[in-house]
Nucleic acid binder design. Sequence first.
DNA 1: TATGGGGCTTCCCATCGTTGTAAGGTCAAG
DNA 2: CTTGACCTTACAACGATGGGAAGCCCCATA
Lengths: 156, 156
Amino acid sequence: MNIGDAAKASGVSAKMIRYYESTGLIPAAGRTGSGYRVYTDTEVQMLRFIRRSRDLGFPVEKIEELLALWRDRSRHSADVKRLALDQIDGLKRKISEMQAMMDSLQHLADACCGDHRPECPILADLGNGPNPAHGPLRTGSSGLPRAKPGHLLATD
Amino acid sequence: MNIGDAAKASGVSAKMIRYYESTGLIPAAGRTGSGYRVYTDTEVQMLRFIRRSRDLGFPVEKIEELLALWRDRSRHSADVKRLALDQIDGLKRKISEMQAMMDSLQHLADACCGDHRPECPILADLGNGPNPAHGPLRTGSSGLPRAKPGHLLATD
DNA sequence: TATGGGGCTTCCCATCGTTGTAAGGTCAAG
DNA sequence: CTTGACCTTACAACGATGGGAAGCCCCATA
């Protein structure tokens, strides 16, 4: 099985398979005489494991732990569950942060009549610094850690 | 006003102020004879505008448009509102994707007794490829675009 | 006036997961 | 033997941010 077939079978792109190998997330695949990587069904299964873990939002770092537990026949299911619960907590936090953003924006959008005139409470709020319109005074640093590029979800 | 003072006053780090200048999001600041950047209150206000926009999750690309509208006294509030509504839609989509992840994970975690034994439905699900346990067959490519690093929220 | 400390400058690197591209080798079918 | 689809490596880019080094500037205090 060449890398392309393994990619199709696992849902992980050939590019990413090589990347995962380079970072040590997966062991180096076997090679043909001419240098092509070769994959067994077992390895494809591991790739599918990774793929599904990513679909659930786990960062690669955590997937490493999940894989270790997967391979460990004397694991404690409590350790797996803890990883899952941690991930759930992380998702919860991100969701509530985004929900807060959305609520603020919705509030502002509701107040904007959205016509040909230039008056706009959205811009007014953005320009007025720490949002005095509908909340307690937030002098300088809001509670929300501002948006960061940290690993998350597809936008497009 | 030096860059450090502008940073404190706006909530945007000096590092990011220079970055925004380098990308053209903000115009180049004035300089003292010895090369120090100098900021006026107007510029600090613009930085606060940016900061607040980032807090609402707008990508820098959209902030550029928001700033243009902010400066344009003959703008149509409809254009601002459209940007806000687009942003709301984006947040909604990301939230529902994360919510779906969370629900799947919660479902799996509920089924895991989380004790010293190795049996674990979470790992079983991850290993069994396209989740046959609680959903229609998803052969190969799930509907969800898998996790991507695209700009989003803080994790830590 | 000398010295020290803190702020400023530019430049480069790292993050995280993924995609794109370029330059080349390999394989199988025609 | 040619063609095209595949593989290989290596590098850069994305988004927004943080970190650090090397060197200059400004002010206050001894």
